[in-house]
Design a protein around this nucleic acid. Structure first.
Lengths: 239, 239
DNA sequence: CGACTAATAGTCGATACGACTATAAAGAGC
DNA sequence: GCTCTTTATAGTCGTATCGACTATTAGTCG
């Protein structure tokens, strides 16, 4: 920062890229757009775009999120900066520095058709061949980050609708981590953490279909999870 | 990213800012440079500078780190991207997007006088009044991040020389967290975590001064800490 | 009605953790 | 030399937490 006066500097194009994740039918899905032009024509890419002159990266990301999902109100959605990708050759045409974000959505709406060319679609995580540019790496980093955050924070509720059952919350963990969890133990842990979830007062119950109806909960006020909810059998614990 | 062809874009200046932390005499210190020119003339600022045309942010950060510390070999130092700051008004002169990094150093060398104007110095954390630009916030974010990482990773060894005692390692935790830890329990926890530290084979011992000589350890190969080493009395656990 | 399904309740043993006491090995001061 | 202080290391004990498991409840489906 202090080098201003001594060194010349090069201007760069700055963009935001969004890894928008959601759960559809018990599987992790990603919002992707199909590229119509070279390079990477026909490949899928993460949605994103350039920063406007008077816009922070956070604001640009939220604007792009609204544009791509077609949602009227994105102000309550969970959006978080992931990291910045700045390899000189990450775009063959020019030097582009990109600030990547992760967004978590409940109940995904069908993405609107977009203006014209690029159509956005929900695709199952990992099903869209190699993505354009370095977007495979960005998406993998986003997945890693979310998985780690489920352990120490309460973001899992960001994947759920305003009222949800503990079974739905558990599915978030199982889907993102790719492991099955013991239901009674998960329940005990979540309810023992103050502020993680709070029961919906009116003995409200939701019947998803078969089985005993489950109690409904809302997201609590807590953001951090102490002690953390560790995923099973990560490297290091052999037996 | 795919918006290229549809939208115009504005070029931005891109810089890196470094929050370089170390321990000197049991206190957390930060590497700061004094600004000679407006704005913020006379204030302290984080070291940093512009990206060169063919340089990634990581490379620029490592180059700046070498320049500011005067160290010949910075290849082994712990350097990690923190986040990117892009508020439109964060620099009054122009639009600057800055990628911030945190660096952890053992045994800090006296910073070299630098080229000419800006002199770099180690100052105790929190002692340098308000910093220039948004550097107070960047530094606070870096401190938060390091504190959290001590819980789940083995980065604490990055603050220590190649061979260190468990007492020194514990001091890293106590200094960054600002809390005292029970020595036998800390020892039990560290030694029970495979790959965190490994003993120096030759019954090597170091006498720092008074007291029984301590065994020496080296950093192990593990990077993540499972289960984590939680700091005491964080919010949420009342009694 | 019975089979099935999913939610909820509860038990039990292993383990990790916080608090604490005890011992060992050095230097400082007398 | 002897004691006091300092720091490292060893070990104990009770509690909270966690993983695995069983049992019960309340619905739907055939």
């Amino acid at each position: 920062m202090q080098g201003y006066d001594k060194y010349a500097y090069e201007p760069f194009a700055v963009t935001v890229d969004l890894a928008v994740l959601t759960l559809r039918a018990g599987a992790l899905h990603v919002l992707l757009v199909e590229r119509g032009q070279e390079p990477y024509a026909g490949h899928w890419a993460l949605p994103g775009g350039f920063l406007l002159p008077e816009e922070s990266a956070e604001r640009a990301a939220r604007r792009e999120l609204a544009e791509e999902t077609g949602l009227a109100d994105v102000s309550g959605l969970h959006l978080e900066q992931l990291r910045t990708y700045s390899e000189p050759d990450r775009d063959p045409r020019m030097r582009v520095v990109s600030v990547a974000f992760t967004a978590l959505l409940p109940e995904p709406p069908e993405p609107r058709g977009g203006g014209d060319a690029a159509q956005a679609r929900w695709l199952p995580y990992g099903s869209a061949g190699p993505l354009a540019f370095d977007h495979d790496r960005i998406l993998a980093d986003a997945h890693d980050r979310i998985g780690a955050q489920l352990e120490n924070s309460c973001v899992a509720t960001a994947f759920c609708p305003p009222e949800f059952t503990l079974g739905e919350l558990q599915q978030v963990y199982e889907t993102v981590w790719g492991t099955a969890l013991d239901r009674p133990n998960f329940r005990r842990k979540v309810l023992a953490t103050p502020g993680f979830v709070e029961p919906v007062p009116g003995a409200a119950r939701l019947t998803g279909g078969r089985g005993k109806p489950a109690a409904l909960y809302r997201a609590g006020t807590a953001t951090t999870l102490h002690p953390p909810l560790l995923r099973p059998s990560r490297e290091g614990r052999p037996a």
